Simulated scan of single mutants.
Amino acid sequence: MSHIVRGVIARSAKAPVELVDIVIPDPGPGEVVVTVQACGVCHTDLTYRDGGINDEFPFLLGHEAAGIVESIGEGVSHVAPGDFVILNWRAVCGECRACKRGRPHLCFDTHNAKQKMTLTDGTELTPALGIGAFANKTLVAEGQCTKVDPTADPAIAGLLGCGVMAGIGAAVNTGAVTLDDTVAVIGCGGIGDAAIAGAHLVGAKTIIAVDTDNTKLNWARGFGATHTINASELDPVETIRDLTDGVGADVVIDAVGRPETWKEAFYARALAGTLVLVGVPIPDMRLEMPLVDFFSRGGSLKSSWYGDCLPERDFPTLISLYLQGRLPLQKFVTERITLDAVEEAFHKMHAGEVLRSVVVL
Rank of each mutant, 00 (worst) to 15 (best):
M1C: 00
I4N: 14
R6N: 15
A10I: 06
A15H: 09
I24M: 00
P25Y: 14
P27W: 08
G28N: 14
V41H: 04
D45E: 04
D50G: 05
N54T: 00
D55H: 14
L61M: 06
A65E: 05
I68E: 14
E70K: 15
E70G: 12
S71H: 04
I72V: 15
E74D: 14
S77F: 06
V79W: 14
I86P: 13
I86A: 13
C99P: 03
R101L: 14
T110Q: 10
T120C: 09
D121S: 12
G122Q: 12
L125Q: 00
G130E: 07
K147C: 02
D149W: 03
P154H: 06
L160M: 13
G169V: 05
T174D: 12
G175Y: 02
G175I: 01
A176S: 15
V177C: 03
L179K: 10
G187D: 08
C188F: 09
C188N: 11
G190T: 07
G190E: 04
D193G: 12
I196S: 05
A197G: 04
G198M: 03
D211C: 13
K216H: 14
H227G: 11
H227C: 01
N230W: 02
A231E: 12
A231I: 03
E233T: 10
D235C: 01
R241Q: 13
L243K: 01
D254Q: 14
A255M: 10
V256I: 07
P259C: 01
T261F: 10
W262C: 02
F266P: 04
Y267T: 04
A272V: 08
A272N: 04
V280T: 13
D284C: 02
P290G: 00
V292F: 11
F295T: 14
G299D: 00
S300A: 01
W305D: 05
G307C: 03
E312V: 00
L323P: 11
G325C: 09
T334F: 08
E335R: 15
L339V: 02
K348D: 15
H350R: 11
L355H: 13
R356D: 06
V358E: 05
